[in-house]
Structures are given as C-alpha cells and as structure tokens.
C-alpha cells in the first residue's frame, strides 16, 4: 500500500465523513433554519401550557418562525411565563394572539401566533398580551358534561 493510495483513501474518507456531518446538521437537524439564525425574544403568559416543552416550535400560519426557549411559573400570578426566540425577519404586531396548540390529536404541542392589525410591532423582550391557553381534554369533557347536565331539565 503506497503513500499516494493511502492519502487518497484517507482524503475520501474524511470528505465523506464531513459530508455526513453536514448532512446531519442541515438535512436532519435544523442548523440553518433556527439555532444559528439571529433572532429576538418575546414573552407570553398562559394560564396553562400543558404539554409544551422547551424547543417546541413557534408557528405562524403553520410556518415555523421560532422556538420556545424557556418555560417558568410566575410565583406571584401562578401563570406560566414562556420565553420564545423568534427568528430575525419575522415581525409581529402588538395585538398578536399566542395560543398553545396541538398538531393532531396526539401530536406535538406548539405555540401558534396570529398577527392582528396593529401598526406597532413587538420589539426584543416584548410581551404578547393576548394569549389562549392549552385545551385540556379532561376539562373540556367536564365542561361538556356540566353543560349537558344543566341543559337536560329544560327539555
């Protein structure tokens, strides 16, 4: 095995190895789409974020525009304070509504943003005032039963 052959093979090996790393980073991971892109932070408060996790996507009209960075409980108000990192280039109006949503019945939980008509835009560190909490299925069923129960005697 002479030197030139070894050099060639090692070169090929290292190149395809690095190629695999790039493939994993770009095609499998999301290096280009979020983590590396510059962005700004927004905060939103919810009564309930059941099932939301850090790194969950933030979507507007179904397009991923950022990711959840941190979820903490505000000890005063007992609300969940969610910090999101929104990619630079996406601007949202001050009256944007943030909702905790689920994709499909068992799918992942994400935050949906619905922009409003305000002319002012949210800046870095801004807070989304209007929020809609997660739908908790037990509560929904309980509510449904109560409604039925209270509606029944009228019939």
């Amino acid at each position: 095995m002479n030197r030139a052959t070894i050099d060639l093979w090692v070169g090929v090996f290292v190149l395809i190895g690095i190629g695999a790393l790039i493939f994993l980073s770009l095609r499998v991971g999301n290096l280009l789409t979020t983590s590396n892109a510059p962005g700004y932070r927004l905060e939103a408060r919810f009564d309930n974020v059941a099932g939301l996790k850090p790194r969950a996507p933030v979507k507007a009209a179904g397009v991923v525009v950022g990711r959840v960075e941190r979820i903490v409980l505000d000890p005063q108000t007992y609300e969940a304070s969610v910090t999101m990192r929104i990619d630079q280039g996406f601007q949202f109006t001050r009256d944007t509504i943030a909702s905790v949503l689920t994709s499909g019945l068992l799918g992942e939980v994400y935050i949906g943003l619905d922009a409003g008509g305000d002319s002012q835009m949210l800046a870095d560190g801004g807070r989304i005032a209007k929020t809609q909490s997660a739908l908790v299925i037990e509560k929904l069923i309980g509510q449904f039963m109560l409604d039925r129960a209270s509606a029944a005697p009228d019939k």
Partner: peptide
C-alpha cells in the same frame, strides 16, 4: 418525513451531543 424530522431534531441538543 423530512419536515417533521427537521422540526424535532435540534442541532445543538441532538447533533452536537451525538458528535
């Protein structure tokens, strides 16, 4: 297949840690 994968796999948390 690819879209969900990309949305769920994080570069730092998953790729870098695996590396």
């Amino acid at each position: 297949f690819w879209g969900n994968m990309q949305a769920a796999v994080d570069f730092r948390e998953d790729i870098v840690n695996g590396f």
